[in-house]
Design a protein around this nucleic acid. Structure first.
Length: 496
RNA sequence: GGUCCUGUGGCCGAGUGGCUAGGCAGAGCUCUGCAAAAGCUCCUACACCAGUUCGAAUCUGGUCGGGACCUCCA
């Protein structure tokens, strides 16, 4: 099976055919750096990280562009004129670019802590004012934009007549205009649905740039059109973002792209779904958001303790990126256990050596082969990570059976072992970007110290002094370290 | 009000016409000095009503419930 992707533009699952194979251009709407991203934002970026990793793993050469919005757009399109970057700056008595710097650094730290791969290009809106002005000039020339008092607006009604507006989100402009009719602050626009390409800056606006229409700043939607065109071309493969950007942001992007060059930009549109916590949507405006690092530290009233970044990622991956996901403490605990199971199996098979190297294909080899093929088929089916993980659990179960002796080493061939090693490793680490954060080998000094206790316990056990041996085991358990007597007489330990 | 999504076993969560998703929890067994871990077995659901079909969780219509977007948000 070849890769198929659900395209939100056409609303069907389509075969993925890049415009210029093996190259793939992917644009993802990045963060607005005026505050910390929350866990919902994180889910989206983790989803596209997985997609980027899988495309790369599948042999594509991906140019992955994810912007940083640092230009400080209007809070809304109705002329209330609150500039996010500036209002936050006044609050903290910082320059706007200090806010930008602070939250950009913070964003990168979080993305790093969650083991996501940086995009290959991460352009900023303020670094592309010239490109945005050029796109506005083209739109003016093509008749899809008009100037009023130093501001430029996109003429949606005119555009709609020629190209159709609203196909991505399924809107029609008459309904939209009806909905906007009573709203204030629209005096400059020809029609209420028109959106700003360039806004004239009032003198107190700190973030402003020179343009052919006077000092001002770019409209909210423009940067993505300008930067995706610059780095990926007028036509490229994938455009991604959260579901909540579908309208109006992505709709406007398509209009800007089409209006300036007759191409709508991306061939495939991917939208990730929202994240809920305890049944409620997590959003900055609702004020119920939990920050990514709060999950790690556990420093939040709704959490019982801290969870490793991989636990949260694993929880994301257990559902489909386009489904709503509701997370809660129980879900985190379940994910933690499940992830540990997989990681321990990977750790086990990594160092496993067959006594006798079989080359004959067995039933177990066949089973492994089918599970591995299944993993690829599931991933190719619109990145179905949930199903893929189900197969990883089954592969891990085979590893444990091998370890426990339920499957004899003669019942599996070297090729089967190699396949287990490769696929568990590749899916967990390379494609899902998880980390074994519970590893026993993490700290040599700790391991050496524990070996002392383990040996003391062994001696006690040899003398059938179980009171002492249990004391050692129980007290270590209280400190969060679990001892396990393995079948071969050795003792292993892990952090609970 | 408009557009769209959704309702799965104790919990989370895949799945789109017939075939065991998976995880967590629970029960039993094996192993173990006892545990833990692991393995095996069991628990086999699809809001409700009607229709299409040889056959529906899956398609169609309706009812009820939940949610998103339409306004800054991933």
């Amino acid at each position: 099976m070849s890769l198929h992707i659900y395209n939100t533009l056409t609303r069907i699952k389509e075969k993925f055919e890049p415009l210029h194979p093996p190259h793939v251009g992917m644009y993802v709407c990045g963060p607005t750096v005026y505050s910390e991203p929350h866990v919902g934002n994180l889910r989206t970026f983790c989803s596209f990280d997985m997609i980027y990793r899988y495309l790369t793993y599948s042999g594509y050469k991906v140019r992955y562009v994810r912007n940083i919005t640092d230009a400080g757009h209007l809070t809304n399109e109705r002329g209330e004129g609150v500039n996010r970057m500036e209002s936050q700056a006044k609050l903290e008595s910082l320059e706007p670019m200090e806010i930008v710097q602070k939250y950009t650094v913070s964003f990168h730290r979080i993305m790093d802590a969650f083991n996501t791969i940086p995009p290959t290009i991460e352009p900023t809106a303020t670094g592309h004012i010239i490109e945005q002005i050029e796109m506005i000039e083209t739109l003016l020339k093509n008749g899809f934009a008009y100037e009023v008092n130093g501001s430029i607006y996109f003429d949606v009604k005119k555009y709609n007549a020629e190209h159709g507006y609203g196909t991505l989100s399924g809107r029609n402009i008459d309904e939209l205009m009806a909905g906007y009719r009573d709203l204030d602050g629209q005096e400059e626009k020809r029609n209420s649905i028109d959106f700003a390409l360039w806004k004239k800056a009032s003198p107190e606006h700190i973030m402003q740039w020179n343009s052919p229409w006077g000092k001002g700043f770019p409209g909210w939607h423009l940067e993505c059109s300008a930067m995706s065109t610059k780095y990926l071309g007028e036509q490229f493969d994938i455009h991604g973002g959260g579901m909540d950007l579908k309208f109006p942001h992505h709709e406007c992007e398509i209009a800007q792209n089409t209006g300036s060059c007759n191409h709508g930009g991306a061939k495939y549109w991917l939208h990730t779904n929202m994240l809920n916590f305890n049944g409620q949507k997590m959003s900055k405006s609702l004020g119920n958001s939990i920050l990514p690092m709060e999950f790690v530290t556990g420093n939040h009233p709704l959490l019982d303790k801290g969870y490793a970044p991989s636990v949260l990622k694993f929880l994301f991956l257990q559902s489909h990126y386009s489904s709503e996901l509701d997370i809660n403490v129980k879900g985190l605990q379940d994910a933690e256990k499940g992830l540990k199971y997989l990681m321990e199996a990977e750790e086990e098979i990594k160092n496993y050596e067959l006594g006798i190297r079989n080359s004959n294909k067995t039933d177990w080899d066949l089973k492994i082969e089918n599970l591995v093929i299944g993993c690829k088929d599931f991933m190719d089916d619109d990145f179905n990570t949930a199903k893929t993980i189900a197969n990883l659990f089954e592969l891990s179960s085979i590893v444990n059976s091998l370890k426990g002796g339920q499957i004899k080493s003669s019942e599996i061939s070297q090729a089967g072992i190699d396949s287990l090693k490769k696929n568990l490793h590749d899916y967990l680490f390379d494609i899902f970007g998880l980390k074994n954060e519970n590893t026993t080998a993490a700290n040599n000094k700790l391991d050496e110290a524990l070996q002392v206790l383990i040996n003391l316990r062994k001696e006690a056990k040899a003398k059938r002094d179980f009171a002492t041996s249990d004391l050692i085991r129980n007290q270590l358990a209280e400190k969060g370290i679990q001892l396990k007597d393995e079948k071969d007489g050795s003792v292993s330990w892990s952090v609970l």
